[in-house]
Nucleic acid binder design. Structure first.
Lengths: 141, 141
DNA sequence: TAAAACCTTCGAGTGCGCTCGAAGCAAGCG
DNA sequence: CGCTTGCTTCGAGCGCACTCGAAGGTTTTA
């Protein structure tokens, strides 16, 4: 139960364990092994553990992290910013303020995006209604 | 007042007229002249009027259309689909059903996107709170 | 022990939505 | 009259986030 941060164990993890191979993680996250290695390369992962022979062994924390990154991706946050966040995390506790700030900013972005979409929704609804009326009036299909 | 469809005159149009040059439209929409020509080329515009010497003369309807396209763009709809919609529009009244369908589908997409963002928002809020707590507890900045 | 999975490095390719520039010419305006 | 704006066609370039493949090796597992 060392849940320092991130989502509180929502999905049942594929294994009860804490050491996953890259293909297991790929299967679980939907990301390709290529992409997972790429994430690591560009600094988007916390240090990923290795077996004594050098193979990656992902932990539940890594899965948490990947889930979180997935969320950030959904916000449309550029990868560079996510990397920045990852860096801050790796730098330790004294960056918590900065991290929080970054998330607050992102939160703002998400809110405006939602507002934008609501706007768009209104336009769509209007158009759809106009079309409905038109179909009632004139010969449809 | 020949507002067949689209938004009901919200923004004050730059001129009271109904014939805009490409640079006027560019200024108004924020799209470049290049992009406007590109939109036309790929079939994303209704037929754009020309002056007797062949220069584009955009109308208020065109501005309406561009505003609508802007909204569709915000939904993340791929350009190809917008082109499809434009084609249907050009094909005339018998495609109203299909157009309506397309918009309904898009509406659904927007709704799921909004839901997704709400989800993400919850995660962000959670994290932000965790950070706030951590800052209260340990030496901040 | 053999096949499958993993490792590394490297670099190229993809899809999307523009974005830009150049060439060479026609039209508009002040 | 001359500068600005516009037209066309063509084709290249860009930023992003992957995505893939190959080469050449080691490790794991059935």
């Amino acid at each position: 139960m060392t849940l320092t941060e991130s989502s509180s164990r929502a999905l049942p993890r594929p294994e009860g364990q804490d050491r996953y191979t890259i293909s297991e993680v790929a299967a679980h996250t939907g990301l390709s092994a290529h992409t997972l290695r790429w994430y690591e390369r560009i600094g988007l992962m916390p240090h990923v553990d290795r077996s004594h022979t050098g193979q990656r062994r992902f932990t539940n924390r890594d899965l948490d992290w990947l889930a979180f990154v997935g969320k950030l991706r959904l916000t449309g946050m550029p990868v560079a910013d996510m990397v920045r966040f990852a860096e801050l995390t790796r730098e330790g506790g004294h960056t918590i303020g900065a991290r929080r700030e970054l998330l607050v900013r992102t939160r703002g972005d998400v809110l405006s995006r939602i507002a934008e979409l609501h706007d768009t929704l209104a336009v769509l609804d209007h158009k759809i209604e106009v079309y409905s009326d038109a179909m009632q009036t004139s010969p449809e299909e």
